[in-house]
Simulated assay, not measured.
Amino acid sequence: MSGGPRRILHVFPSFAAGGAQMRMTALANGYGARFSHAIVALDGDISCRDRLDPSLDVSFPAIQAMTGGLASRLRGIAQVLRRLRPDLLITSNWGAIEWAIAHQLTMRGRHIHTEDGFGRDERDRQIPRRVLTRRLVLRGSEVIVPSQTLYDTATRVWRLPAARLHYIPNGIDLARFSPADGVPAGMAVVGCVAALRPEKNVGRLIRAGAIARRDQMFQLTILGDGPERGALEALAAEAGLAVRFAGAVADPAPLYRAFSVFALSSDTEQMPLSVMEAMACGLPVVATDVGDIARMVAPENRAFLTPRDDQALGAALAALLADPARAAAIGQANRRRAEAQFDFTAMAARWAALLDR
């Protein structure tokens, strides 16, 4: 093409703050005027727009809700695609798969599909209808996954062509997420950064915290917001656990440095940004052993990854809090691993190679 930046249309089930959305905003900010962006949030939530550089060429087209049967919805999506005429369509996760179908049926431009993980409905097994849809629809698209677990699934289960499947681990700004100077004073703080949605199962962390508190004193701080906040506040009060609900925070980096331990209790993950950020900040991690977390953390940390079980998670928390010297050594090992594996510049270069192709 000639004249002006390339036009990218991004379709997200939601543009609320989440791993895929924050990766997109970081990449867009890094590329600057190289691309223009149109962003569609199918649920209407565009709250992650606050993370975009105001100087970028970004629009949020008004899209009418697609109703009726599948054929009717696909016709409506095709009309939008013809109206917006992007140079590149990027769809995110299963929630945007109908846009991938409509694009394949009606357009000739390039398409990239990203898969960042599954909801609770596909936590333990793939839904056959979705497997078949991905297998058929995505064969002609470029597909990007951030975790080895997802790459294995896309290869073995969805049977996508290796030439079109790209494993690009997430990356972060290692200078912004850096260890604190010295050990935070006062009571130990267990920190969690997560959207308060069912698949994150923050309730498990609160119950595990109540178990760990029998042996160790600490404060639990939860960064993030979402539909489960009210129920989680009630659970914390019922458990008699001191929990600080800090809400959504635009820049969590300074708050990580006040943590003693980072904890994540999700039912399903792939390559969570929050674990990378905690590692870059020199923190030990206690988490459920899901997705790629065991591959992400330093070998010294793997003993503190547990099954999806309240008691096991609580015991791991108590053991790590009881041994500050070991926790500090694990945090240092995690920082070294983050420096070796999770550099934003390397991720951005690999994405750029695909966007420019």
Rank of each mutant, 00 (worst) to 15 (best):
A212M: 03
Q332K: 14
G291P: 08
A234H: 10
P272K: 12
P254F: 09
G314K: 01
V286K: 01
A248F: 15
A236E: 14
D292V: 07
M271A: 14
E228Y: 04
R207G: 07
M217I: 14
L223E: 11
G224V: 14
T288F: 08
A237K: 15
M296P: 04
M271R: 12
L223K: 08
L321H: 06
M276T: 05
L321Q: 03
D292S: 02
G209D: 03
I206T: 10
V275P: 09
A303W: 01
R308G: 00
R308A: 10
G209P: 04
L305E: 03
Q216H: 06
M217V: 15
D289G: 02
L241Y: 08
D309A: 11
L232Q: 04
A242W: 13
A194D: 07
G247D: 11
G291M: 08
D309K: 06
D267S: 14
M217Q: 15
A312W: 05
R229A: 13
F218D: 13
K200F: 05
A328E: 14
Q219V: 12
G224S: 15
G331M: 09
R302Y: 06
T306Y: 00
L264T: 07
L205D: 11
I206K: 12
A248T: 12
A263T: 04
P307I: 10
V290S: 01
E228V: 01
A315I: 01
K200D: 00
Y256H: 11
Q311I: 07
D267G: 10
A315W: 03
A328W: 04
F262D: 06
F245P: 13
R204P: 08
E269N: 06
L232P: 06
Q270T: 15
L321T: 11
A328G: 09
P324K: 06
G191Q: 08
P272F: 11
A253C: 09
E277L: 13
V202Q: 11
A242F: 13
Q216T: 12
G240M: 11
P272L: 13
S260P: 07
Q311L: 14
P198F: 05
A333N: 04
V190N: 04
N334I: 03
F259D: 08
C192T: 12
D309Q: 10
D267P: 00
F218K: 10
A287R: 01
G209F: 03
A298D: 06
G240H: 10
V275G: 09
P299D: 14
P299V: 10
R308S: 08
M296C: 06
P324R: 07
G247Q: 07
A194I: 05
D309M: 04
D289P: 00
A231D: 15
G209W: 02
I293E: 02
A278S: 08
L264E: 05
G240A: 09
F245A: 13
F262L: 11
V275K: 06
A333D: 09
A248C: 01
V249E: 04
E269A: 07
L283Y: 05
L305R: 01
V243H: 14
D251H: 14
E300N: 01
M296I: 07
L283Q: 04
M296S: 04
M296Q: 03
G247L: 10
A194Q: 05
V261D: 02
A294H: 09
V249P: 00
G314C: 01
